[in-house]
């Protein structure tokens, strides 16, 4: 008898609360902006946070309210920005596609190691043992792959002790930039095909001792550049993407072969 009561009482309570909630659901129903759902449909859905909002839903809500521009989502690209602009009835504005780039070429066997690191596979852990690096070059990529772990698009991989970006997969969300404890990874415009694969600011002689490929600041590229786009600052060459005409002269004259030119 007691079992019957138990079942009946709990069943009745459950049904009562269910009915009440269903009723309350009708009364307290909140209209969701249909625009928000439509905008959300256009987004990549990776929740990468590259737009600065908490996930794709947060960004969609901000766009629907008119608080955010339509072109903030780098992951879904300019086509999506155009579609969102169409939904919102405004002009999209140009989004320049950015990709991640690791300015270091010091792979295993090229950059001298500081010590033989056998600790956890984590750049921050490898930085704890003095010198802020497991390589003699304090500017070098440690290659424990914090950026690769942060990448949601499988575009970042550690090859031979240095992180490399797969441009065909990179969407430019910047997750790797945040993940890199040494602030090595940076975002550059995708149209930029020529990059300086070094960021060492030591003097040339010092670089020669610790890395076979580091920039020694010889100024050859700066002298040969027809567009005045490459300059040696702090003993390392850097390219101004605004001025660069992608001719590849600097890559050809570099004695250390660290200026890389991607084939189009």
């Amino acid at each position: 008898m007691s079992i019957l009561y138990a079942v009946l009482v709990l069943g009745a309570l459950g049904a009562l609360f269910g009915a009440l909630l269903a009723f309350a659901g009708k009364i307290f129903h909140v209209e969701v902006d249909p625009k928000q759902a439509a905008v959300r449909e256009c987004l990549a859905g990776a929740n990468c946070g590259g737009c600065g909002y908490p996930g794709c839903d947060g960004y969609a809500a901000a766009v629907a309210k008119g608080e955010a521009p339509c072109n903030k989502c780098v992951a879904s690209g300019p086509e999506a920005a155009a579609r969102i602009a169409e939904i919102m009835g405004v002009a999209a504005g140009d989004t320049e596609k950015m990709v991640a780039f690791v300015p270091c070429s010091g792979c295993t066997g090229v950059a001298e190691p500081r010590f033989n690191y056998t600790g956890p596979e984590d750049c921050r852990a490898a930085m704890l043992f003095g010198g802020k690096s497991s390589k003699l070059c304090t500017f070098a990529c440690i290659g424990m792959g914090n950026c690769a772990k942060a990448c949601k698009f499988d575009a970042m991989h550690v090859v031979n002790g240095v992180a490399e970006v797969d441009r065909s997969k990179c969407v430019g969300c910047g997750a790797c930039v945040d993940a890199c404890p040494k602030d090595i990874v940076k975002l550059i415009p995708e149209k930029q095909k020529i990059m300086v694969g070094c960021r060492n600011q030591d003097k040339g002689g010092q670089v020669m001792k610790i890395c076979q490929v580091g920039c020694i600041g010889c100024m050859k590229c700066q002298r040969e550049c027809p567009a005045d786009a490459i300059h040696v600052e702090n003993n390392v060459a850097s390219i101004d993407p605004e001025k660069c005409i992608q001719c590849g002269t600097c890559a050809a004259v570099c004695p250390r072969k660290i200026i890389r030119k991607l084939e189009p």
């Binding site: 009482v9 309570l13 459950g14 269910g18 009440l20 909630l21 309350a24 307290f28 129903h29 909140v30």
Partner: peptide
Amino acid sequence: TLAFILVIAALVQFVEMFLKKA
């Protein structure tokens, strides 16, 4: 215990709906 959990769950649902609206 069982009945109280039922009450609390329904109540929290209700509070959530109420806050979402109000």
